[in-house]
Design a protein around this nucleic acid. Structure first.
Ligand SMILES: [Mn+2]
Ligand SMILES: [Mn+2]
Ligand SMILES: [Mn+2]
Ligand SMILES: [Mn+2]
Lengths: 223, 223
DNA sequence: GTTAGGATTTAGCTATGCCTAAATTAGTTA
DNA sequence: TAACTAATTTAGGCATAGCTAAATCCTAAC
């Protein structure tokens, strides 16, 4: 069996490696997982040594997932996003409350639980933050999204997803109406990195600070 | 924080100690938890030594829960039974499938999860096997139930609950119609311990083997 | 009262996964 | 090319929670 810790390493390697499976550094993993670098080295050595080979690791050269590692990591992502939507839609959590609970439970639900939740939700495609829910037993995909921080001025944008890693930011985004599906135009970019944004051709201009602007991912069209 | 292992020890001590908080032996715990006796001794020594005092332990004289230990143990029982009912009613698990999943998840759900599930289910009183769900932040109670195995002949009985620890037995009980709320009379007791049982004054007589008879708890009246 | 045998504890190990401090490596910069 | 530095690894520990083998305790039977 795969432990909760190993699970978290696999998911972090997947997410940090991005669309092209880039090698992930010891430092990046330590940072993401909130552990010290020697702990990461230790874990990677152990993983690279043992039987169901989940990672490819070369000393000083970073780590990548094997096919098996990728399979498990995507399964965790599916668990996480299904759980988030379930907590939100069925248990009436607000969208800033779902992440922490899903992060814990994703490791412990069974296949049956996963299947039943998916069925109840109608085999959904997106979680409450706009992230795509991978199909069962399939690799997910990384959409190529731009951050709102880097989006050109005056070019129409649709919010595709928002970062779910900070609850306070999520509450702020909700208050501002910056949620997946919202259409907007960036009207001005301050030297501080703050933006002036107009929602949906509406009347008000919204101030979006730099931090927040990096947490909003946008595209040209609906999803 | 209390680990999953400690949780399981507390719950086992509660259940083995029964209504009168009898001292629980090392052996009984080892048997119930599926670990070896030295592991139990080790755990009890550790628990008895550390800060939030959860158990009272005297060498060679068994172990009991403190008030704090009892509080945590009953909370776990509440989690377990709420989860079982939730899995059964909302996620459409059959009653023989709920126990194992609940046994795992009971340790990891938050207060919020507990509260939302309880609300969705309408603050329910009983789980799918007829066990009482303790009220939030309250000690549960041990009902004094008799097993069907020891119930007098020809005396009307109502099934109050059934053991949830064996899936095959649960399927058998369901097939026979021996479920919480069912009224019955024991018509005959074989030397093997098997019973002949008539449901609800109905026409058929059901054969209930000894093992099954010990898994069914009955009382005089509805709940 | 002794004593045998079952229950329990002690002693000593293992694996996981984290930590700090110290050593080493690799890549850049002078 | 040599040295510096940041990244990484090694060395040595700790806590949790399990295990086997061996010692010890308690009680019940003699
Ligand atoms: Mn999330
Ligand atoms: Mn996680
Ligand atoms: Mn159960
Ligand atoms: Mn459990």
């Amino acid at each position: 069996m795969i432990s909760e810790s190993v699970d978290d390493y696999l998911k972090a390697i997947l997410e940090l490696g991005g669309a092209h499976d880039e090698r992930v550094t010891t430092n990046a993993l330590a940072e993401r997982l909130g552990v010290r670098t020697p702990s990461v080295t230790g874990m990677l050595q152990k993983l690279a040594a043992q039987k169901p080979l989940l990672v490819l690791y070369e000393k000083h050269r970073g780590v990548q997932l094997t096919a098996a590692g990728k399979r498990r990591a995507w399964e965790l992502v599916r668990h996480h996003r299904l759980l988030e939507l379930f907590l939100h839609d069925v248990l009436k959590y607000s969208w800033d409350e779902v992440h922490d609970e899903a992060e814990r439970l994703e490791h412990f639900i069974s296949e049956r639980f996963e299947d039943r939740v998916s069925a109840i939700l109608g085999d959904p495609e997106f979680d409450p933050h706009g992230h795509a829910i991978p199909r069962k037993d399939q690799s997910g995909v990384f959409r190529d999204e731009a951050t709102l921080a880097e989006w050109p001025l005056h070019k129409p944008a649709i919010i595709s997803s928002v970062s779910d890693r900070n609850a306070a930011s999520l509450r702020e985004l909700e208050r501002l109406g910056l949620m997946p599906g919202a259409a907007l135009i960036v009207e001005q970019r301050k030297s501080s990195g703050a933006l002036a944004v107009r929602l949906d051709g509406g009347p008000e201009v919204i101030r979006v600070n730099k931090d927040l602007a990096f947490r909003v991912l946008v595209g040209n069209r609906q999803r």
